[in-house]
Amino acid sequence: MGARRAAAGARGRGGGAVTRRCAARAAVAAERDAHGRTRCTRLRSDGPLALRETAEGVHLVGAAAGPLGGDVLELDVAVGPGARLAVRSAAAALVLPGDGTSRLTVRARVGPGARLDFAPEPTVAAAGCDHRSAAEIALAEDATLRWREEIVLGRHGERPGRLRGRLDVAIGRTPLLRHELRVGDGHGARAVLGDAGAAGSVLLVRPGLAREAHVEDGLAVLPLAHPSGVLITAVAPDAALLRRRLARGERVAARARGETAPRGLPADQETASAAAFRGAETPDSCS
């Protein structure tokens, strides 16, 4: 593993193997072909960001531990008009301390009528880590999105280091959501996250979602100002319960249309909405 990282560092920085830092830039692009099928037109792995095509879509298969402090990782995702792409990961990412701040930037462009479903496994913030992540997502007017982020605050019995994650999403030129989570900077953590061991969110963008907020234990379903956006946020003692709460929130966001719509809503509309929701999980993408 160490050799691999050193090699990646050398490739990324032109001989910086002694620092063990990585600079890596990976990319995936999906386009819809003449037959209406989505094809991966670009799949570039780099250093610890290794990408594999699977039946489900594209998997990030961590080729090294990390990120470690000092790593600068970038992932570009492009989904062309009408194409559908799902991005998953094989395992949780463990953010470890190292030589400075580690950075992960994901930039995604989702074209007209296209769909991106980005739901990797959680990021675990280890003790002493100093990590910054940024996701910049540009959606066309009628693009749809499912974007999940989960953070586990320390390994078992451990307090996490510093972590700052920011999500910026725009539809055309209108900002839809700008959302940061800051952990470990010592400012009122108890009021912000309570004693949660894990925190996460799912952003859904598509027509027909709930327009009424919903709250229950550790879960909030928050319709955004833009009528097609809903942010689901959850906190939980552990990653497993966090995942269940987020999944429950997604069901509430998808179903609430039927609950809040006037009586007499055509049944097929509700079915279509539910199908669209399930569709986010179906393996028709990038295969």
Partner: peptide
């Protein structure tokens, strides 16, 4: 910066 608990 967000405060998940305060939103809830």
């Amino acid at each position: 910066p967000s405060a998940p608990l305060l939103d809830l």
